[in-house]
């Protein structure tokens, strides 16, 4: 991309390193860090929302909601992540195309599952075969986000279910004695107090989520692990920048990235925990009260 890099085979030393590190593929590599951060930024709130709904459903008084919530938690928690990722993404993809097939394909179109092939008419492809590579990537990324959110939502639901049970019963009874309705008790007493119990479990989940992002690679999204492996592999003269096997260096770079992410998260979560403990009837809250007094 720079004039000095026009002929990579003739340059060496620092210029070579500079040109190598700014090659198109390296720029894609740097962008893929954003992909990972974006996945975290979308998945975390989505999983939290799903978890909250799951936990609320699991402790609901209505039987169908309770069954639904508990089944969701048990099923997703019980299936190994990798299997879930391999199965669910394909099922989701084919499910979406099947629904679109029902809506837009001309009547009389053949049943999409034909032996080993899954085939819908051209108009029912998601995204359309004629759309640009960007949409294909975006669709793959969206499928990954949904899958991550469902898996981590189930774990979050379990954590929050436990946290809701941990709020002292006396608090809820007192609220009822003041004449609050069920919904009011839930909104004003239970939810605000539950977070402090949920936080240790949720922060664990966040750490696991950070470390699980390389699963993206499994779903065909070109993430940092894909690029590290691709760029680090030894290159022959077919490539503009031939080099030996440098995978170790690239993976050390990834390690530093992941360690920095966890270190930063620990700091933020520590502060959040201190804030939530304030005024709570927990050991941490009590210690803060004494220190202040």
């Amino acid at each position: 991309m720079f004039a000095a890099c026009a002929d990579p085979k003739s340059i060496e030393g620092l210029t070579w390193a500079f040109c190598y590190l700014t090659s198109g593929k390296h720029l894609d590599f740097y962008w893929s860090f954003l992909t990972v951060l974006m996945l975290l930024a979308i998945t975390a709130p989505a999983a939290l929302a799903l978890g909250f709904m799951g936990a609320t459903a699991a402790r609901s008084q209505a039987l169908p909601a309770r069954i639904l919530g508990k089944t969701y938690i048990a099923m997703v928690r019980g299936i190994p992540d990798i299997i879930f990722f391999l199965f669910f993404v394909i099922a989701l993809d084919q499910g979406i195309e099947y629904l679109k097939h029902l809506a837009v394909c001309p009547s009389g179109a053949p049943w999409p599952w034909q032996g080993l092939e899954f085939r819908v008419c051209k108009e029912a492809k998601v995204p359309l075969g004629s759309s640009s590579a960007f949409w294909h990537n975006a669709y793959g990324f969206a499928l990954a986000v949904v899958t991550f959110a469902i898996v981590f939502g189930a774990f979050a639901a379990n954590v929050m279910f436990g946290a809701m049970q941990a709020v002292p019963k006396a608090q809820l009874e007192t609220a009822e004695a003041y004449g609050m309705s069920n919904a009011q008790v839930f909104r004003r007493i239970l939810v605000p107090q539950m977070w402090v119990y949920a936080l240790p479990g949720l922060s664990n989940l966040w750490m696991i989520l950070i470390k699980a992002t390389p699963l993206l690679f499994l779903l065909g999204v070109e993430d940092i692990v894909y690029y590290a492996r691709e760029l680090g592999g030894s290159k022959t003269n077919s490539y503009a920048y031939p080099h030996r096997d440098w995978r170790l260096i690239y993976f050390i770079g990834l390690m530093i990235f992941y360690l920095t992410m966890t270190k930063l998260s620990e700091g933020v979560l520590g502060r959040l925990s201190a804030r939530l403990s304030q005024g709570q009837a927990t050991a941490a809250g009590e210690a803060m009260r004494r220190a202040g007094a």
């Binding site: 593929k25 004629s130 077919s238």
Partner: peptide, 23 residues
């Protein structure tokens, strides 16, 4: 404009097919 055919390759088997430095 109508017929877009998507070609799938591995991109890791030079000189048959590989991802070049421009990505």
């Amino acid at each position: 404009a109508q017929d877009v055919v998507r070609l799938g390759t591995e991109g890791a088997y030079p000189p048959y097919n590989f991802i070049n430095d421009a990505g």
